[in-house]
Structures are given as structure tokens and as C-alpha cells.
Simulated scan of single mutants.
Amino acid sequence: MTEKAERAGGSRVLFALPYGVMGLATAAELLTPPGFGMLPLLSLGPAFAGLVGTRWRTAWIGSLAGLMCLLLALYDGQLGRRRISIALVCVAGVTAAGLVAAVLRERRDAELASVRSIAEVAQRVLLRPVPRVAGPLRVAVSYTSAVAQARIGGDLYEVVAAPGGTRVLIGDVQGKGLEAVETAALILAAFREAAHDDPDLDGLSRRLRRAVDRELHGEKFVTALLAEVTGEGREVTFLNFGHPAPMVVRADGRPLFPEPPRFALPLGLGVHGGDEPEPFRVAFEPGDQILLYTDGVSEARDAAGRFYPLDERTELLKAADPEAALEELRTDLVRHTAGPLHDDAAMLLLRHRDAGPDPRPAGDAG
């Protein structure tokens, strides 16, 4: 059963619960001798309604519970007895409490919806949609938050088609919350400006390092991977600042994880010394694919603690549409964890404009 179906099933149960408990209370009253004292159980109906329903539904169920009290008392010949009055007071009191709870919950939900809409606007400003076509590349992006209600976090990505080539950035800010968002905004702004101005990847990386060093203090840092595709796109150049290695998927489905000849510290830790990042180049022929991702993908674990086997999932990237292929991979990632991710997961898939992976099995190619 899918998560959406489970939520729908749970909603139906909660919707029917007040009627179910009132039905059980009615049956108990009818099956026990008059005066046994089961009528106050009818107040459970408006109690449960106040937890999940609107104020109007709570008022309706409370009124229904009061009417059932009167009808059952009339049926048993107990109308006017003290216990009937007590049962009616219980129903009225619980209904009033349920109405207060429903009103407060509706106000909270409205505030949460407002905050979510603001977060979505902030995301569109911070992580604006990447171009589906940039220079010689076709691009697809996927972002999965670790919290179902969240729309924004510390992972970042950008694709810029500049005169000198197509520049790509993916990164992961240490920490969470607004501070991480502010840092992500700083890096993206610096990258978007430098990607158009600097003639080479080294100059672009120096601009990023200066921007981050000015703003980050202490042990805060950002892992990042820069990529540049020039000309016809037959070669890609990487600069790695402590980020997970890109996955290059050859046309035959074979995955490679190229690593730099010399590892560099993440952005923000340059003041502590360490080597400068060294560019490294990888062949990128038509039919190949490049997947850039954050550690929310590579470090996702299942219930047994096993990491997500990204190198075994290249078959999921065979769809002709890069967005569909990336969605297949994202769905499999969420399925692997069997629940919410423990960290945000961003992915960028790069393909040549004039070629994609052969959708036929290898034995059928010819």
C-alpha cells in the first residue's frame, strides 16, 4: 500500500470513529438493564470529533449525541431521571471542549498553511527551477525533504548556461533551519554571478571561497561540487570541495565514481589550511549520464542500516525522459528507507541534448 493510500485509509477511520463509538455506546445501553449508566459514553462521539473534525462537524455530532441520549432515555422510560441529566451535561461539556479544540486547531492549521506558502515562495527564489535545456545538456532535478511538511532546507543546486560553457553546482550546507537557508542563498548568489563572469572554473571557485569565508565562522562549512561542460559537451570538468563523488553512467549502464587527484576541504574550512581543489576531467559521450547528488542520497539507510546502493540502481535511469528517470530513482530511494529520509536529498541528472540512454536491453542493441 502506498503512503497516500495509507493516509486516505487513516482519514476514513478517523471520520467514522465518532459514529462508531456512539453506536457502541447505544448498543451497550440497549443491552444492559435500565439505569446501568452507559449513556455518558455517548460523549466520546464529540470528543473524537473535536480531535480531527471541523467546528461544525463537532457541533453536529455533539447535537446527535444529545438527541440519542434523550431518545434512549425515552425508550427506557428514564426521561427526567437524574442520571439522564448527568449524561446530557457530560455530552454538552465534552462538545464544548471539542469545539474549543477544533477552533484552536483550525487557527493553527491556517497559520501553518501561511508559513508553508511563505516557505514555498522562498524556495522558488532560492532554488528556482533549473533550465531543462542548458547548452549541450538536458537537465532534470529532484529535491526530497527529510521532513514531509518542509519545502526548503540546506541542500542547493544551480545550472547556468554561460558564454564559456554550462556551469553546474550542487552543495550541502552543514546544519538546518534558517541559518542553513541563509548560507545556501549566499552561495547560490555568488555562483550565479561568478558563473557568467569568470572565464574558467578555478576563478569561479575562488569567488565562491571568498564569499563563504567572509560569512561563515567557526566550524561551519558547505560541501560542494562544481561541474563545467564546454563546447559539444564531450568532456566534463569537476572541482570537488569535500562532496560525494559524481556518478557517471556510461551508455552500457556501467557506473563510475570519479574522484579528484587531491581532495580539498569543504567551503568555509579553507582558513584551516589544506590543499586547494584540483580540477579533474572525465569523458562525457552521447549516451552517458551524470548524476550529481547530496549525501542524503548516498547515506540513506534502510531498516537494517544498509546504505542506499546507488551503483546498483543505474537501470532506473533508462527512461527516455530525464525527469521520469530521476523520479524513478527518487521513488526507489524513498522505498529503500521505508519512511521519511533522515537528511534532505537533492539530485541533478545531466544528459546530452542529442542522445539519451538506449531504452532497449543490451542484448537487443544492434
Score class of each variant (00 low, 15 high):
Arg234Cys: 14
Glu215Cys: 10
Pro244Ser: 11
Phe191His: 02
Leu239Lys: 12
Ala195Cys: 00
Val229Gly: 02
Arg214Pro: 07
Gly165Trp: 05
Gly177Arg: 03
Glu193Asn: 03
Glu215Leu: 08
Glu193Tyr: 03
Thr230Trp: 06
Leu188Ser: 07
Arg210Gln: 13
Leu225Lys: 08
Ala227Gly: 15
Ala227Val: 14
Glu215His: 12
Leu216Thr: 05
Val173Thr: 06
Glu179Pro: 11
Ala245Met: 11
Leu225Ser: 11
Val212Ala: 11
Val229Lys: 03
Gly164Trp: 01
Glu228Arg: 08
Leu216Val: 04
Leu204Asn: 06
Arg192Ile: 02
Ser205Leu: 07
Gly177Thr: 06
Ala190Gln: 03
Gly203Ser: 07
Ala190Asn: 02
Leu186Cys: 07
Leu186Asn: 08
Arg192Cys: 04
Pro199Val: 02
Pro244Asp: 10
His217Ala: 15
Ala227Leu: 12
Asp198Gly: 04
Arg206Ala: 09
Lys220Thr: 13
Asp202Phe: 10
Gly242Thr: 15
Gly242Ser: 14
Glu232Met: 10
Gly242Tyr: 12
Gly165Gln: 01
Glu228Lys: 11
Val249Trp: 05
Leu186Tyr: 06
Arg209Ala: 14
Phe191Thr: 01
Gly203Asn: 09
Ser205Ala: 15
Gly242Pro: 15
Val236Pro: 12
Gln174His: 10
Ala211Arg: 00
Ala180Thr: 07
Leu188His: 08
Ala195Thr: 01
Gly165Val: 02
Leu178Lys: 03
Val236Gly: 07
Val222Ile: 14
Leu169Phe: 10
Ala162Ile: 00
Phe191Val: 01
His243Ile: 08
Thr223Cys: 13
Val173Ala: 05
Val168Ala: 03
Leu178Thr: 08
Asn240Ala: 13
Glu232Phe: 15
Pro163Asp: 05
Ala194Trp: 05
Arg250Leu: 10
Arg209His: 14
Phe241Asp: 14
Leu178Val: 13
Asp197Gln: 01
Ile170Gln: 07
Leu204Phe: 04
Ala224Gln: 12
Lys220Met: 14
His217Asp: 13
Gly171Gln: 08
Asp200Trp: 05
Gly175Cys: 07
Arg209Met: 13
Gly177Tyr: 04
His243Asp: 09
Ala185Ser: 15
Thr183Asn: 09
Val212Cys: 08
Gly175Glu: 09
Gln174Asp: 09
Phe191Pro: 02
Glu219His: 10
Val236Ser: 06
Glu182Gln: 13
Leu201Ile: 12
Val248Gly: 00
Glu232Gly: 13
His217Met: 13
Ala162Leu: 04
Thr223Arg: 12
Val229Arg: 05
Asp202Lys: 07
Leu169Cys: 06
Gly242Leu: 14
Val249Gly: 00
Leu204Lys: 08
Met247Gly: 04
His217Gln: 15
Gln174Thr: 12
Phe191Trp: 07
Leu239Thr: 15
Arg209Lys: 12
Ala195Leu: 00
Leu201Ser: 10
Val173Asn: 00
Ala190Glu: 01
Gly203Pro: 02
Pro199Ile: 02
Ala227Gln: 09
Pro163Thr: 04
Met247Tyr: 11
Gly242Val: 14
Ala224Phe: 11
Val181Phe: 06
Leu201Phe: 05
Val236Asp: 11
Ala194Thr: 00
Arg234Gln: 15
Leu226Asn: 11
Ile170Cys: 12
Gly171Ser: 11
Met247Ser: 02
Val173Arg: 05
His243Gly: 05
Glu182Ser: 07
Lys176Asp: 07
Asp200Lys: 00
Leu188Lys: 06
Gly164Lys: 04
Ala227Arg: 07
Glu179Cys: 06
Glu179Tyr: 09
Ala194Cys: 01
Asp213Trp: 04
Ala227Lys: 10
Ala185Gln: 11
